[in-house]
Design a protein around this nucleic acid. Sequence first.
DNA 1: CACAATTAGTTTATATATAAACTAATTGTC
DNA 2: GACAATTAGTTTATATATAAACTAATTGTG
Lengths: 164, 164
Amino acid sequence: MEKKYCHNELVSFEDRDHEALMGVWWTGILLKKQAKHFFSNFLSSEVQFNIMMVLKYAEKPLTQSELGEQLLVDKSNITGLLDRMEKAGLIRRLSVDGDRRCYHIELSEVGRKILEKVEQPYRNYIKKLMSVFSKKEIDDINRYMARLEKAVAAEESTAFNDRS
Amino acid sequence: MEKKYCHNELVSFEDRDHEALMGVWWTGILLKKQAKHFFSNFLSSEVQFNIMMVLKYAEKPLTQSELGEQLLVDKSNITGLLDRMEKAGLIRRLSVDGDRRCYHIELSEVGRKILEKVEQPYRNYIKKLMSVFSKKEIDDINRYMARLEKAVAAEESTAFNDRS
DNA sequence: CACAATTAGTTTATATATAAACTAATTGTC
DNA sequence: GACAATTAGTTTATATATAAACTAATTGTG
């Protein structure tokens, strides 16, 4: 069995672990690229879609920081993302009673309408993608990814270049 | 069982398929972030590490296009990446006999030395990360990711906004 | 050989991503 | 209540990412 560092035949390693990890990595990249393309007629990126989805389904108004935490987006990145989305009329920043430091972010009417157009097609698309897997395999993937995420989080402190 | 669109408790869907796909997505993002941090003392990104690994293990000299294909990096992106890496003394562009359009990219001595410093620690790091999985589970992940990649590729033509 | 089509790489415009330094507002502590 | 520490968000600098338009060189076709 050939082990690949990346996606074609020119380079191969002998490390099944590495291959598995790179598999998750590359698949994630592919999914991101595809999603970006999927939304490109309506939104500048899949990140904007994710933001809108989080806003739509949030159980309470979210601040920029809370949004960033959920989506693993840095606060300095959130500022620009929301600037562009605000400029495009997709979201609004509302001042918050009692804390003049932060905003509550909400979907605008335009944003809601665009989300209505793309949400279901995207869900269908994902449904179709994932239909290559059985119920049991889907559960496997869910469990494996959860464990891998936990392992990554646990290694956070032991990185190569930590000065601690 | 709770289904999450993203990483915390504020938003939840009822879609196990979607959750699995998002799991791969998020885990990929986490891996990228961690890797970037891992290399940050020596390289400006994990992408540069990947480029150097491909160059080291390639069986023949690679052009910019070939490099880009392997790493899923757009040709317009490769130009800038290699510009920065060349400026940092990590790689060289060599003119190619008989085709004045392209370059062969090779690791410089400096690049080779830096790679020597970071490659084994990174491999160990990955080994440790993946040690939470059994041999059988590693094989599962490899198979699942390969199938998911294939499914993604197969859907490429049916994207929401195709004008075909 | 002429010349259209293709290929390799660059440039430009725009978006996403992070770290670090920064401002302004709030909280904790005495 | 004063003031240090923290928190929310912005700014700046730099890197990565894509699409589209571009230049220069090569290939394919008559």
